[in-house]
Amino acid sequence: MSELGPLTGEPLALDLVNTRTAGGDLLTTPAELRAWLRLQADRLPLPEVLTEADVVAVRRVREHLARALDRARRGDEPLAADLGALNRAQRAAPAVTELSWNGQAVTAARRRVAGSAGERLAAWLAEAAAELLADPAVTRVRECEADDCVMVFLPAHPRRRWCSAARCGNRVRVARHYQRHKPPA
């Protein structure tokens, strides 16, 4: 992972896309995937064992999502190949709503019981991608305005310009301040 770690806190699908940074890819090994999944522990199950094939499956979903998102956020039709790949990823590990009794009431929990660990993980992520792409808010997804940043975000406030005020926003403000106050050459 990068020295600052991955950007998290956006919708899960955007957090996945944001594992591609200007400095490289944050998901190249099972250990890196496990570290990212720990950051997403409240939203995704953490498989006991992760393999290179699992990393490939997650990265494949991420690439199809990134291309579809790039088009959908501009109001353009995503490529059928990208949507089809996301649909296939979900079908590889279908979700079921498992009912149980907790002693007081019936509870329902979504589970994926079929497929390898990587297929189940890719299916969860493809489902998050489907939810984001079908949400009308997808057209509000923005790219960070910092020159060297490739992160995307869904702004809660219409004036938000950076992926993170603490990361890019601060760097941009410091650079502007330096430009205004630098000594003459």
Results as ranks from 00 to 15, higher is better:
Ser2Glu: 13
Pro6Gly: 13
Leu7Asn: 06
Gly9Gln: 14
Pro11Asn: 09
Ala13Ser: 10
Leu16Cys: 07
Val17His: 02
Asn18Phe: 03
Thr19Ala: 05
Arg20Thr: 11
Gly23Val: 12
Asp25Leu: 09
Leu26Asp: 14
Thr28Gly: 12
Ala31Cys: 10
Ala35Asn: 04
Leu37Phe: 10
Arg38Gly: 15
Leu39Gly: 15
Ala41Asp: 08
Ala41Gln: 01
Leu44Trp: 04
Leu46Gln: 07
Pro47Ser: 02
Glu48Thr: 10
Glu48Met: 05
Glu52Gly: 12
Ala53Val: 12
Ala57Ser: 15
Val58Leu: 06
Val61Lys: 00
Val61Gly: 00
Val61Glu: 05
Ala66His: 11
Asp70Met: 02
Asp70Glu: 11
Arg71Leu: 15
Ala72Pro: 07
Pro78Trp: 05
Leu79Glu: 11
Leu79Trp: 09
Leu79Asn: 09
Leu83Gln: 06
Gly84Gln: 05
Asn87Trp: 12
Asn87His: 10
Asn87Arg: 13
Gln90Thr: 09
Pro94Lys: 07
Thr97Ala: 13
Thr97Cys: 14
Glu98Ser: 09
Ser100Ile: 01
Trp101Met: 05
Asn102Ala: 13
Thr107Val: 14
Thr107Arg: 15
Ala108Tyr: 11
Ala109Lys: 14
Ala109Asp: 11
Ala114Tyr: 00
Ala114His: 08
Gly115Lys: 04
Gly118Met: 08
Arg120Ala: 07
Ala122Arg: 01
Ala122Phe: 03
Ala123Met: 05
Ala123Asp: 08
Ala123Tyr: 04
Trp124Ala: 14
Trp124Cys: 11
Glu127Tyr: 11
Ala128Asp: 02
Ala130Ser: 14
Glu131Lys: 13
Glu131Pro: 00
Glu131Phe: 12
Leu132Arg: 00
Leu133Pro: 01
Leu133Lys: 08
Ala134Glu: 06
Asp135Trp: 07
Val138Pro: 02
Arg140Glu: 14
Val141Thr: 10
Arg142Pro: 07
Arg142Ser: 06
Glu145Gln: 15
Ala146Met: 09
Asp147Thr: 06
Asp148Gln: 10
Cys149Thr: 09
Val150Trp: 12
Met151Gln: 11
Val152Gln: 08
Val152Asn: 01
His157Val: 13
His157Asp: 14
Ser164Pro: 09
Gly169Glu: 00
Ala175Gln: 04
His181Thr: 11
Pro183His: 02
Ala185Tyr: 02
